[in-house]
Structures are given as structure tokens and as C-alpha cells.
Amino acid sequence: MSAALREPGVEDLEIDLLLEALFQRYHYDFRSYARASIKRRLVQARDQLGFTSISAMQAGLLHDPATLGRLLGYLTVQVSEMFRDPSYFRALREKVLPHLRTYPSLKVWVAGCSHGEEVYSLAILFREEGLEDRTIFYATDINPAALRAAEAGVYPLELVKKFTANHQKSGGRSSLSDYYTADYGRAILDKSLRSRIVFSDHSLVTDAVFGEMHLISCRNVLIYFDRALQDRAIGLFHDSLARKGFLGLGLKESLRFSSHAGAFAEFVREEKIYQRRDP
């Protein structure tokens, strides 16, 4: 096996140009996303949207704004579950909420909320623990279609079995069926769960601090960023947290490689829950 010197291929150049076009024309900045994943998604979008090349897709993007929405559907994560990783929610319930309970009012931020599965899970958790009424939840995403779906709170009924099992494993004190009605193969979440949630457009790449949060949950979002962008986002989380606020990451994410690692303490190590260090 020889050490080949590889020139970046034409397709890599096309990707650079498309991401630049996406940023300059629409201000969506994917230029610092982890390359292998973004390439996989762009190739998938190219094939499924019927373009013959990434360049052709770039032309479509520049001249037909409708292409933007379709492409964003590929470039942003859509896949999640309610109470995904039940042990994470159990740790929030048993270890983090006892601290949050001491505050008269609370702010929680779900960064990269996709279709809302996580923020609704948190709303249910906080309701079960009697904290919902004093909490405002901020659910943000860069994809307007995802935000609309999140606000609607409607999920395919066949997913609900998994959601229910997750909720039980997380230590749920109620039945998930209390929070939705089934209708034509869809589970429609109770509108009252939305009463404390603010859905909003926010980019971890280009937007600024989102202030004084007591808990930020951002799971399986940072893995899509390159190291420099991960660091920016973690710094943004640090500055958006109240003193001694909590940060929850995905189970395979960590602050280990971040320059901000020293600004956080591991609060529940195995669940990747951190606490901002403050004197």
C-alpha cells in the first residue's frame, strides 16, 4: 500500500462552491460542518432531487429559492425520538431537577430541536416533576420547516410505541398516552405542552448568545460540526448559561477536545451532563 498524495477531487470543489453559495445567497452556513457527513447528505440530495451534479444543484439553489427548502431538509438532522436515551432523562429527573427546583423561574434551551421530540420530552418531564409552570422552554433550529413541524407536534403513530417505552425507562411518572390523541395513524401532542415553549430560529454557527439559561440540551448536533465550530458552539453555550447552569450533550459527544473544557465540570459523566463552573 503506497502513500498516495490525493488532490481534492472535483466533487470536493463543487461542494465547497455550493456551501459558499448557500451562505452568500441565503446566509445558511454549513462551511464548518464535518465534511464526511455533509458530503454524504449532499450526494443524497443530488440524487434524490434529480440533479446530475453538485454544480447543477448549486445552480438550482441560486436561481430557484424553492430548492433551498428541499436542500435544507437533507442538510439538517430530522431523526430523533421522544425520550431518546432514557438514561439521560432519568439523570435529568433524578440529579439535575433537584437543583433546578431551587430557582423561582427557569429557562431551558433545546438547541437544534429538529421536529421537537426532545423539547416535548422535557416539557413532559418538567410537568411530571411540577416545574413546568415556572419554566420557559426555547426550542431553536435553523430549518424553518423543522420548526413548523416541531410546533405542530404531530408524529407517526408507529413511533409512539418506542417513545412510550423510552418514557417508561426514563422513570416517567405518568403514561405517555395522557399527552397525545391518536388520529388516522398520527399521534397529536396535547396543545397544552406547547404553552411554555417558544419556537425560534437560531443558528449556532452565526447567531449570538441566547441568555441566562438554567439548562441547555443539545444532543447529537455537535457531532456534525468540525472541531473549530464545535468549540464556537460550546463557548456560546457557556456564555448563554446562568451561573452553575447545566449543559446536556449527546451520549457520544464530550467537551474533551474543547478549549472550553475547563469551564465546565462533569456533573453526570456517563450521561454527558456538564455544569458551568462558577465560583
Partner: peptide, 10 residues
């Protein structure tokens, strides 16, 4: 390409 590993939840 730099030999670093990436995970994805796609």
C-alpha cells in the same frame, strides 16, 4: 481526510 473520526446519528 485528516484521519479524524466523525460520528453521525443520521
Amino acid at each position: 481526510a485528516d484521519g479524524s473520526l466523525s460520528l453521525s446519528a443520521d
